[in-house]
Design a protein around this nucleic acid. Structure first.
Length: 732
DNA sequence: CTTCCAGATGTTTTT
DNA sequence: CATCTGGAAG
């Protein structure tokens, strides 16, 4: 038959050619699930005669969507007109835009990002609820609100078990009202509002149900309840749902992902066909065995018998670095050696870490060696201050009721609208139930009624006239020209360039942004803004540069490399400190490690550092517990004996090994930093030569010392080093 | 109203 | 350490 089934094994064929109805493909890492997904789409179109425009595929990242579309287009030689492959968020944004007449927001709504959300929630807490934003931080409340939205819980149904819940419910309620007033939605709203819309408007839902005959979902294990419900709604009529996922790669529980959706799917679709993909085409057997040993420690999972015919390959390599500097150095030197002697492509190497903050040390190592690298994510371009400012201008021009963006730009660059003036404006806006823009507009039109005096009034009016000018031209002008006009008329460049390097950098970023916007010249402003709000970390991996990639473990999902370095394998980092006391979260940390390991085709390096610089001090974390689960016969250890290391040896006891049930099973003993005793403990009264008496608040062991935080009766809080400070315990 | 400084504060992971 | 915030000086 055709090339659609070429090169597929029997399980893959079974999936691609499955009959209509619900299908779940449970795929191990590297089992070719993207391949199956793309071939399935091609199969539907070419063999089953389904028109491309009646197929919708959902992914989690733009990159995955783009890649899949490219692949399908290649297989079908371009016969894919109207095929919809997009992220959940983007497809929902599109639906909301099209069906805005059924919604409390207009179709020119904007999407609030995390920073906007925080600013808005702050207003809610302080102005609406008269709370200090210290007790109830916007971040914490937003977390709860986000969870609720992902679980499709509306404000009025928010479960109340405590006074705190009551506060959160009220904040949630006010927050939603304010979003509507701003003609805005947040990320979670995109999903929740789409589901709500379909629930409340059966005819609208029906239109979508009959427009699309087939729904495909990638990374099904990462769906949250809202996403699950959305898919369920859309396939209710025809039941043609095709999901691909791997519960062992579920790493987004914290943002609502619920791998129990797999179980839900089985219950909701009793005639679900399940297909298991167990053959791995990516990694060596050694890497696979090591990864499996790690993931098998997680409870409550269907074990997969992963296998490969790629052969054993080389053993995993373990390296203890002295600190994060040496860790980076080891990575760079190893890559340099591999590319020089083993015929490995620099672009086929990747460094993965738990937190973005860890990238810096690695980057510095590359810079020191004068070698190129590709950094994924981190300080994202579109989240930089100056870029967000320019974006805020566009958003206000597009959607004048966006008060959050208005607050950003009203005095940026400074134009004499200070705190006092702003307060007056806000008070007036509150009184008239309008947005800041309406108030400013009124000052332009009827200045005699304005509650402001000459100078401030003038500043506001001039600003209002600028805004109005941009609004008048926004429809005709391409985005890039509009941006240029705004930059010119606000004196943006002069305000950034202040003689410092930083200022030049910032202006450079703005210029880069202008360049990017040229590509969008014929795209409407609304679409441009949506696009930018939904771009993701992984999206901008420059394909044309042949250099190693640096990324978080989360960003690594779906990618593969010949050589992978997993760095910072320390207790408190991976597993992350915040996850350690929750078994569910610990299981997810383990899956994260598993995802990292299974990215490697040929060589896998596992690194941890003896000590590490963080928050301005050196700390020792100890070896990650996950390393203990890597079978020692699959590992080759490489342990340097640095000076500092030897010094510590005396004061340190090794991990319980041999007879110890929980001790790591490694080719050598690992250090543990629990042995040294602290001298001071919280609650103890102490006396200091200079500060007098006080009480110990906290005491932490540092590399070679003990850091004591003392609240002195007369001098307040001080942080002291036990060895240097003249500090003595008081009896009783 | 703006700028500057000191002190507090904080970081998981991302659409 | 690095960024943000709030308060005081310019």
């Amino acid at each position: 038959m055709s090339h659609i089934l070429d090169g597929l094994n029997s399980a893959q064929r079974q999936a691609v050619t499955a009959t209509d109805g619900p299908v779940l493909v449970l795929a191990g890492p590297g089992s070719g699930k993207t391949r199956v997904l793309t071939r399935r789409i091609a199969y539907l179109i070419q063999e089953m005669g389904v028109p491309p425009w009646r197929i919708m595929a959902m992914t989690f990242t733009n990159k995955a969507a783009r890649e899949m579309l490219n692949r399908v287009t290649t297989v079908l030689e371009g016969n894919t007109k109207g095929l919809i492959i997009g992220t959940f968020h983007k497809i929902c944004a599109m639906i909301l835009r099209r069906e805005a007449s059924f919604l409390p927001i207009a179709n020119d709504y904007v999407i609030f990002d995390t920073a906007d959300q925080r600013a808005l929630m702050k207003l809610v807490l302080i102005e609406d609820l008269n709370l200090s934003d210290k007790q109830y931080t916007p971040q914490m409340v937003l977390g709860k609100v986000s969870n609720a939205k992902n679980d499709l819980i509306h404000p009025e149904n928010y479960p109340i078990n405590s006074y705190r819940d009551e506060i959160i419910q009220r904040a949630y309620q006010r927050y939603q009202l304010r979003l509507v007033a701003n003609n805005a939605v947040d990320f979670d709203d995109l999903l929740m509002r789409a589901v709500m819309l379909f629930e409340q408007q059966p005819t609208v839902l029906q239109r979508y149900q009959t427009s699309y005959d087939h729904m495909l979902v990638d990374e099904f294990q990462d769906t949250n309840l809202a996403q699950y419900r959305l898919v369920q709604q859309l396939v209710e009529r025809h039941q043609n749902i095709f999901c691909v996922g791997d519960e062992d790669q579920s790493i987004y529980r914290w943002r609502g992902a619920d791998y129990r959706n797999v179980r839900r799917l089985r219950e909701d679709f009793p005639d679900l066909q399940s297909i298991l993909l167990e053959q791995n085409y990516r990694s060596t057997q050694t890497i696979l065995d090591a990864a499996r040993a790690v993931i098998d420690k997680n409870p409550h999972r269907t074990k997969k018998a992963l296998f490969t015919d790629r052969g054993d390959g080389v053993k995993l390599m373990l390296h203890e670095a002295h600190d994060e500097v040496e860790e980076g150095q080891f990575v760079v030197e190893t890559i340099a050696t591999l590319t020089a002697t083993d015929d490995i492509d620099p672009g086929e190497c990747a460094v993965m870490y738990r937190t973005n903050a860890q990238s810096r040390a690695i980057e510095e190592a590359f810079v020191r060696a004068n070698l190129a690298y590709r950094l994924i994510g981190a300080t994202q371009f579109y989240r930089r201050k100056e870029i967000k400012d320019v974006l805020a201008y566009l958003r206000v021009v597009h959607n004048p009721d966006d008060d959050i963006s208005m607050l950003r730009i009203i005095n940026t660059p400074t134009r004499g609208i200070g705190k006092k003036t702003l307060e007056t404006l806000q008070a007036w806006a509150n009184n008239t139930q309008g947005s800041l823009y309406r108030v400013i507009e009124a000052m332009v039109d009827t200045p005699e009624q304005a509650p402001l005096s000459g100078r401030a009034l003038n500043s506001v009016r001039r600003f209002g006239e600028l805004l109005r000018g941009w609004q008048d031209v926004k429809a005709e002008l391409p985005v890039n020209d509009l941006i240029q006009l705004i930059l010119d008329e606000t004196g943006f460049q002069d305000s950034l360039i202040d003689g410092t390097d930083e200022g030049n950098d910032r202006w450079g970023n703005v210029e880069e942004f202008v360049n990017v916007s040229v590509d969008f010249a014929d795209v409407p402003l609304a679409e441009f803004l949506t696009e930018l709000a939904l771009v993701s970390e992984v999206d901008d991996l420059p394909e044309d540069v042949n250099a190693p990639s640096l990324m978080t473990l989360h960003a690594a999902k779906g990618l593969e490399f010949d050589v992978v370095f997993l760095v910072g394998l320390e207790e408190g980092i991976l597993p992350h400190i915040n996850s350690i006391d929750d078994p569910e979260q610990m299981a997810e940390e383990r899956r994260l490690f598993y995802v990292g390991m299974t990215r490697a085709r040929e060589r896998l390096y596992l690194l941890y550092a003896f000590e590490r610089f963080r928050y301005g001090s050196r700390d020792q974390f100890g070896v990650s517990r996950f390393l203990a689960d890597v079978p020692s016969e699959l590992l080759v250890g490489n342990r340097p004996l640095g000076g500092a290391r030897q010094r510590r040896e005396a004061a340190v006891t090794a991990w319980p090994s041999g007879g110890g049930r929980n001790g790591p099973d490694l080719p050598f003993d690992l250090p543990n930093n629990g042995a040294r005793q602290r001298v001071f403990h919280s609650g103890e009264r102490v006396v200091h030569a200079k500060y007098g008496e006080g009480i110990v608040i906290e005491s932490k062991l540092r590399t070679s010392d003990e850091e004591v935080s003392v609240m002195f009766d007369d001098f307040g809080m001080k942080h002291l080093l036990a060895s240097l400070a003249k500090l003595r315990k008081l009896d009783g």
